[in-house]
Amino acid sequence: MEDKIIICRCEEITYGEIISAIKAGCHSISSIKKYTRAGMGSCQGRVCAPIIIKILKSQGIEAVVEDKPNFPYTPITIRDMEVKDDEQ
């Protein structure tokens, strides 16, 4: 695969960057995320995580620790989250 192919669309992280992270010792979705920002964008890895798992496996890392899904399941605004005055 070409190094410049984008794997994480939200943060525009390439295949080459993912491979560098794996070579630096990142063997999980969470550590690759921290190292490269892949999965930190608005889809929170819902698009790139399955691809990164495949890349990890292609590099001989079989027991991939997956990232935990976390609230919110889809981005919501601060306005929607904050406690309104009439609720108190």
Binding site: M40, Q44, F71, P72, M81, E82
Partner: peptide, 25 residues
Amino acid sequence: HLRKMAGLGARFYPALRDLKILRTF
């Protein structure tokens, strides 16, 4: 707590109200 924090953040910086929250932990 999450809702309190959102309220506090928005109180300090009102312009943040329209920002989307991606992840909590």
